[in-house]
Computed example of a mutant assay.
Amino acid sequence: MSAIIDFLNNNGSDLLIKTWEHLYISVIAAALGVIVAVPLGILLTRFDKAASPVMAVLGMIQTIPSFAILAFFIPILGIGKIPAIIALFFYSVLPILRNTYTGVKDVNKSLLEAGRGMGMTGWERIRYVELPLSIPVIMAGIRVSTVYLIGWATLAAFIGAGGLGDFIFSGLNLYQTEFIIAGAIPVTILALIVDLILGKLEFKVTPKSMRDKEKTA
């Protein structure tokens, strides 16, 4: 305990900086994943034949070890935060894409027909029918992806991107447990906090009729 207290006294400011770096890398990568995966997931519902190949390719990327992905971008983009964010972005896409595709495909077809009958355009059906009804499934994918990214972002320290992984790698190299704890515990806390925030956001954006239905189920 005294070693941890001494560590905090000597490295408290660095801990705050690295926590911010870790959160920044994770959130930017997750945001890029949402920007790409949600529209792509909706698009794939219109082209079913393309869905399986796209999912298969992304699934293959998911199986590549994180270190390999990070190392792959070093000759192209060098070291630092940008290659780390891009590498994590690739890992963020599949869960969000799969949930978006599944959520939109499962929307009741009679509701879509009703939208057409009311004169809604394709974009209006997406905005006012498909997205609101599929948002709980989409948000579940975003939550899973973001929590995973916070854990994987520790590896960003391997290519000089900073973050809490710096403490973990230093602790492993120096055989100092307090460094490992100072990196691992904040990562866990960050993941829990972000998951809680996204859970609250999911509740807010879920249509009230769906929330009421879940309560009575």
Score class of each variant (00 low, 15 high):
E178A: 05
V129Y: 02
K200W: 12
A84N: 01
T146A: 13
I180N: 01
P39S: 07
T146D: 03
G119W: 07
F89P: 04
T177F: 12
Y101L: 14
F67V: 15
I35C: 12
P75F: 06
I150W: 01
E130D: 07
S13C: 07
V147Y: 01
A37Y: 00
F72V: 08
L155S: 03
I180A: 06
R211C: 05
A161K: 02
V147S: 10
T216M: 14
D14E: 15
S209E: 15
A140Q: 09
D166R: 13
L133Q: 14
F90K: 10
I135V: 15
L43K: 11
G115M: 05
L44P: 02
R116M: 13
R127D: 04
L201S: 01
F72A: 14
T216F: 13
L16C: 10
E202C: 02
I197M: 08
D14C: 08
A153N: 07
I82D: 04
P136L: 05
A31M: 14
T45Y: 05
P75H: 06
V93R: 10
L155Q: 06
D166K: 12
I142N: 04
R143V: 09
I126W: 04
R46C: 11
I159V: 10
K49I: 15
W20H: 10
R211G: 02
M55D: 06
K109P: 01
